[in-house]
Every structure is written in C-alpha cells, then in structure tokens.
Design a protein around this nucleic acid. Structure first.
Lengths: 219, 219
DNA sequence: GGCATGATTGAATGTTCACTCAACACTTGA
DNA sequence: TCAAGTGTTGAGTGAACATTCAATCATGCC
C-alpha cells in the first residue's frame, strides 16, 4: 500500500470515528453520548459508521481494544523513559495521571474506570475488555515491583501491592472528580508513599540473605 | 390485585418512587434507567412522579440526599455497634462493604461511586451531593482514626488516611466489579491492613510522651 | 473501457425518551 | 353538604434515540 500522504495526515474514516467516540465516551460517558454526536464530530454519515461497526456497543468494544493497544506507548513508555528506578516508576505513573487531569480541574476521570462502572454489568461482552485493560496496568506495576527485588520485603505479595497501586489511582481519581480537587488523590498517593517507605526500610532491616520475616507485621 | 393493606405497611408514593429509583440507578445507572421503568417498579403514574419531583435530575438529587441521611443508620451504626475498637472499625467497614457485594459476585458497585463517575461533570447541581456523601463517609473514618489517639503516629495526617480508606474501598470495588472477583478488593484491604500494622508499631516505638518522629519516614 | 467491490451517502425507520396536562378522586374543615 | 386543596390518572407530546438501506461513488484489476 503506497502511502500517498499529501497532508501531514488525513485520518481515515475508521480512525476519525474511533477518535471521536473515545473522546466523547470519556467526556460524557457511553449512554450519554448519542451516535449522532459521534457522527457529527467525526464528520461521517451513519451508513459509514455502521459499515465499519455493527453497533454502538461494538464501537465501544473497539475503543476499549484500542485503549489496550495504546497502554504501553501512551501510558507506560513515557514513565519508563523518564524514570529508571522501578519504585520511582510507580509514583511517576501516579504523578503522570495527576498531570493529565489536574489542568482540567479533574473534570474527567479515568476513561477505563468510568466505563467500568457504567457498563460493567450491563454489557457482558464489554466487561472482559475492561478487565483486560486493568490487568495490563496492573501487570506493568507488578513487573516494576518485581524488579525492585529485595528492596521490598521478601514476603510481600507483589501482585497484591500492584493491585493496590491501581486502587489508589482509581479511587483517588474518583474522589478528585467528585470534589473538583486534588486533595483526596494527593492524600492517597502520599499515604501510599509512606507505606512504600515503611516497606523499604523494613526490607533493609531484613538484611543480607534469606531470612524469615521477624518484625511486627506478617505482610 | 386486591390486597388493600394486608402487609404491615404500604409505603406512600414518594417512598415507593425513591426506593425504586435508588435501586434502579444502582443496578443500571442513571442514564440507562428510564423514567418509565421507575414508574412501573414503583406502581406509579407519570403525573404523580412529576407532581413530587420536577424532573428526573431532581429525583436523582433526592436519592442522593437520602443516601446522605441513611449513611449513619444503615452504614456506620452497624459497624459501631458490632465493633468497639476504632481501628478495627475501619476494617469492619471494609468488611461490611465486601459482605454486601460479594454475594452478588460484585455485579453492583458502590451506589455513590457509580453515580460519581457517571454524572459528576454533566450535572453541576448533582456533584455537590456526591461530594457531600463522600465527605460524610470520610468524616466517620477520620473520627475513628482520631479516637485511636497515640496508637497512630503523632505526625500522621488522620484526614489523609481517612481519604485513603475511602480510596481503597472505591478503587477496590471498581476492580472487583470489572473482574467479578474479590481479588483486587481483598488485596487492597490486605495492603491497607499491613500499612496500619506498620503505623501502629511505629507509634508504639514513639513511646511515652511528646516526641518528634525519629525513624525513617516522615509520614 | 468495463466491471466488480467496498465505502459512502443521507433520508427515513420505528422505538423509546423525559415530560405534560386536563380531568378526576379523595380528604378535610366549615 | 359543599368548597377547597392535594394528590392521582394515563393518553398524548415532540424530540432524540440507534439503526437501516437503496442509491451513488471511488478504486483496483483485466
């Protein structure tokens, strides 16, 4: 296929639809977004959309598939490029998310999280795609935590902690959106930071080689 | 249908509407719930509903007002009755929430949280009511943490930690709903428990009277 | 040039949406 | 017994909804 590209880029129909749909679902939610609005914003006629996507639900599915594809290049790569230390990467991710939404006064939430609560149990074929997105996020964080090796306590469950990082992001953002303020998000991240500091110092006192957890908590 | 009033009590129109609306908004979301469905479930005609509530949005507002009113008697009082220790109350609350939603395989989320993400930035007059609910939850947890006194580190910000508890609940439940599994919720609660244990033992080592935080983390 | 194929057009479909309102029923106080 | 007030009835409103499809267009291949 010869890419005869006169303009820097003139996105094709499918791309325009996906871009518009993703943006509108994020801004207004799935149910509150009419197909006619997507058509207008994408400059497309209904027949074209329904030639490419059999239904509005299928379009939502395609949007979520694309979120999965974009997870690494858009979300994770910038973090990994900017930050080398695996533990710092966790908090760089949380900071990056803050930087995205703070300028808009937290008017928007996580695009995945919003859809998760809106369509999770009404669209059986969509829920797995949401789960797939969360799993992807969680897997990256878990990878970093594993790379941190013995800087974290031996008995600490990396998967559990990774899930908690995602929890902090989503739960914090939900409150930020409700209050139009960063407070609860920042508070949750700060507490997570303190928790990590305690874990790091606990691991440090675990010392040299294989040693059973001796102090206070079982982890 | 002829049963005039065999039951102990036949709730009045307003109550029937609020009950049905609250249940349907919770199960299906606000936008996905048609007024006609509410009317059917409440056995009410449209004119009656619109005599009591000027619009569907106003009905949503009334539902959220009622959530605020029910926060103590339905959510917090059972926890306080069952559990005396202030720190244990935090985890009793998290457990109670789990017990509510686990039997349904986490098909439903937090009624407030769902609405928070669905209507927070499209309904300016509703958002404050959601925030008011979150503030209420957070205030109770903060009260308990304050009652814990010097069992927690002196410099620990109780308000921040209370916000984090809410974060864990909402973020964990969102993931539970997406995966139809308690895993991420339990993981987040377990990590919070570990964090609390570390904080408790840190406070213990702060010892007798007024003392600056000496160890590792600043909190 | 001719033709097959897939993309695009856009008016029209039937359905569902939130909401209205004139008529009616019931309670209450005089 | 009646008048006033409050709550209820339910068919009906126009608008918006997701979706369809016969017709038209653009493109690649022989």
């Amino acid at each position: 296929m010869a890419p005869a590209a006169p303009q820097p880029q003139a996105p094709d129909t499918k791309t325009r639809i996906l871009d518009a749909a993703a943006r509108l679902f994020h801004e207004q939610g799935f149910n509150a977004t009419g197909v006619s609005t997507i058509l207008r914003e994408a400059s497309v006629n209904p027949g074209s959309l329904y030639n490419l996507f059999p239904s509005k639900d299928a379009l939502l599915g395609a949007v979520l598939e694309r979120y999965t594809e974009l997870l690494y290049p858009v979300v994770m790569k910038p973090v990994e490029d900017k930050t080398a230390d695996p533990i710092d990467r966790v908090f760089a991710l949380l900071q990056q998310y803050r930087d995205w939404f703070a300028p808009l006064d937290f008017r928007l939430g996580c695009p995945i999280g919003n859809l998760a609560l809106e369509v999770a149990d009404s669209h059986p074929e969509i829920r797995p795609l949401i789960q797939q997105n969360f799993d992807g996020w969680s897997a990256f964080v878990e990878k970093w935590l594993t790379e941190a090796g013995d800087r974290l306590p031996q008995l600490l469950d990396r998967k559990q902690l990774a899930a908690t990082v995602l929890t902090v992001m989503e739960g914090g953002l939900m409150q930020a959106r409700s209050s139009r303020s960063a407070m609860a998000y920042d508070a949750s991240v700060a507490q997570l930071r303190t928790y990590f500091d305690l874990l790091l110092s606990q691991a440090q006192s675990e010392g040299g080689s294989g040693e059973r957890a001796s102090r206070s908590s079982g982890v």
